[in-house]
Design a protein around this nucleic acid. Structure first.
Length: 598
RNA sequence: GUUCCGGUAGCUCAGAGGAUAGAGCAACUGCCUUCUAAGCAGUUGGCCGCAGGUUCGAUUCCUGCCCGGAACGCCA
């Protein structure tokens, strides 16, 4: 999308400087004119004066000369290398917010740039329920998948559940000892929490055995918990169970299946509440064997090496050496990732694979990609780790030992309650029938929006106190702008007012607030595409706040339904509905809903 | 020790080789007989970690240093 006047300027410059080397798909980007400057849009001539071998200020002057004679332009003002352009209201709105469809359609990449993308996120362990860290992962993953899909890519979101390993055995051992036939059904406890409680019980018992061990054998007192793990009775029991699991012991497998099924049922509820869906869920228990196969094949080809003790490892040069299989042939963490990566490739033949995983695993993924490359998969170059920072609390890191872990389900409940309280307070006695649905949309919207506000790389601080506020730069602020427009539209319908986009007279909307609103709307396609390119939804969050703010200023200054006359009223109604469409599209892209009223 | 990420307003965070560095929160001041005050307007608040370098121009790029975080497991 472009303004007609700047498009004409482009053609003018191209014709005038016929021998200039103009980049393919070049166009003059229009930016909103900064506060305090006189103009609607700004052309930054520093950016393109070089193409025409002109000094920026001369370029700006030349563009000013051309544009000041353009039918759409009211006035120009060249300041150094910047050109501030005041566009006539009719042309400004016509080229921007006049059609939300045109704006929304422009927010897609050309067919030649569309890719098939597999994006893996969430990747929980099945030994305990999800917490705030997972919520950030889920939110980043689902929003990124949604964004990439929105701009035209073919996206396959997948989950990889870490459903085997020592951590699950810990919960299983504790259940065998302390479970007494309890189930999520007969206790009414959500399945993932139920299993997680036994994980805690295991650790409590382990701590007791560790301290008895340390007091019995003072020479061991200084050794770490990890080093002493196998010296405890319960630690050995867990280890034995893991070996039994790998050996396929039917009883162990049966308990494992049952406890995992409880966890899956619990996760399903959490996912449903967040709106998380996957095209496919991989289980580590089903992919680690493939990883082993790949490793043995590469070993035969001499790509990987076998150490004297039988362990298989690979030399990754700068990244160091990495063990891929232990001496006893059992797999390590990266083994299953090797298998899963190939399986995902075979299943979906993507152009690229993305992993949404925390930044503490940067080296892990560098190694994984290097291993895939070494193993001979040419597509290894297209693999991408979207790493994100941890979530801290005002008190510091979340620590399960100190009980500061913020549980996902609790958090959702809290956000819901806050939204509901706020809504009830506003409604007074007329509590609407859909209060619960509405509160869920607002509460979950506030949470997701807050998590997406930070760019993914940022180690962010989550302040539960501050998060309870739905004022300022929040999801509800943007939802509120939509709800107000919805309300206007409803009232227009009640009064029998027909909104006629085709006959809107845009020249009537010449106030600064109206023009700023349209200029901001104009930016939407570029914002979405830039966000997709950066794989960063915080770009969209910032933009939606800007657009909602522009609307709030407009709303304060101008009457819509009670406008001076019917023509102005109609144009403003069209403008408002189109802004609402963009806001709603942006929120939807972030997987955030919009309540009809607030 | 090596590598990576960060250091911008009291707090949480944007920004970006270019105009006067922004927003929210917090503090203070106004605005609800008018389409929803989850709102709007305003005031206060900045050696953009420090020192060099490149450039017409650096808070942004480069180098060094200081501070904070992370990774460097046959844990996941």
């Amino acid at each position: 999308m472009n303004f007609k006047c700047t498009g004409d300027l482009e053609n003018y410059l191209k014709a005038k400087y016929a021998d200039a080397k103009i980049p393919a798909n070049w166009s003059i980007p229009s930016e909103p004119c900064p506060q305090g400057m006189s103009g609607d849009i700004t052309l930054n001539c520093f950016k393109f004066a070089g193409i025409f071998k002109q000094a920026p200020d001369k370029m700006a002057q030349e563009a000013a000369d051309f544009l000041s004679n353009h039918a759409d332009v009211e006035k120009t003002e060249a300041v150094k290398g910047f050109l501030n352009v005041t566009v006539k209201a009719g042309a400004l709105h016509r080229d921007s917010a006049a059609s939300s469809k045109q704006i929304l359609d422009a927010a897609t990449v050309p067919a030649s740039e569309r890719r098939a993308i597999v994006i893996e996120y969430s990747a929980p362990n099945t030994n305990k329920p999800q917490h705030l860290g997972h919520v950030r992962n889920n939110t980043l993953g689902m929003s990124l998948a949604s964004l990439l899909q929105r701009v035209g890519h073919n996206v396959t979101p997948v989950n990889l559940v870490n459903d085997r390993g020592i951590h699950i055995c810990k919960s299983m051992i504790a259940y065998q000892r302390f479970g007494r036939g309890a189930t999520p059904e007969n206790t009414g406890v959500k399945g993932d929490h139920f299993v997680g409680d036994f994980y805690v019980k295991f650790n409590n018992e382990l701590q007791e055995q560790l301290s008895s061990l340390r007091s019995a054998k003072p020479e061991l007192a200084k050794e770490s918990d990890e080093d002493l793990f196998l010296k405890t009775e319960i630690g050995r029991a867990a280890q034995t169970m893991l070996q039994d699991w790998e050996a396929g012991d039917p009883q162990v497998r049966s308990l494992w299946k049952e406890m995992n099924s409880w966890v899956f049922a619990g996760f399903e509820e959490t996912y449903k509440r967040m709106g998380v869906t996957f095209k496919h869920t991989y289980l580590e228990s089903e992919t680690y064997q493939l990883g082993k196969d790949i490793i043995y094949q590469a070993l035969e080809k001499g790509i990987f090496e076998k150490r004297e003790d039988g362990a298989i490892l690979v030399d990754l040069g700068k990244l160091g050496k990495k063990v891929l299989l232990r001496a006893d042939g059992t797999s390590v963490y990266i083994t299953q990732d090797i298998g899963t990566t190939l399986k995902k490739y075979n299943d979906f033949k993507p152009d690229t694979q993305i992993w949404v995983v925390g930044d503490e695993q940067i080296l892990h993924f560098q190694m994984l990609f290097a291993i895939m490359k070494k193993a001979g998969y040419p597509w290894a170059d297209s693999l991408y780790h979207l790493s994100y920072g941890m979530v801290n609390l005002p008190t510091g890191k979340m620590k399960s030992r100190e009980g500061t872990v913020v549980d996902a389900d609790d958090l959702f409940d809290e956000m819901f309650k806050l939204a509901k309280d706020a809504t009830v307070e506003r409604c007074g006695e007329n509590v609407p029938a859909d209060i619960d649905e509405r509160s869920e949309i607002i509460g979950m919207g506030a949470l997701k929006f807050m998590l997406l506000k930070f760019n993914p790389k940022t180690t962010m601080m989550f302040d539960p106190q501050a998060s309870v506020k739905f004022e300022g730069d929040t999801g509800p602020y943007v939802q509120y702008a939509c709800a107000r427009i919805n309300s206007i539209q409803r009232k227009a319908a009640e009064r029998g007012i027909v909104i006629d986009a085709a006959s809107a007279d845009w020249s009537l909307l010449s106030s600064p607030e109206e023009k700023a609103l349209s200029v901001c709307a104009f930016m939407y396609p570029e914002v979405l595409k830039a966000a997709a390119k950066k794989m960063d939804c915080s770009v969209i969050v910032t933009y939606l706040l800007d657009l909602a703010k522009a609307f709030s200023r407009f709303y304060r200054e101008h009457q819509v339904l009670n406008a001076e006359d019917e023509k102005i009223r109609n144009a403003r109604l069209v403008l408002c509905c189109n802004i609402r469409d963009i806001l709603a599209d942006g929120l939807k892209t972030l997987t955030i809903g919009v309540p009809e009223t607030m």
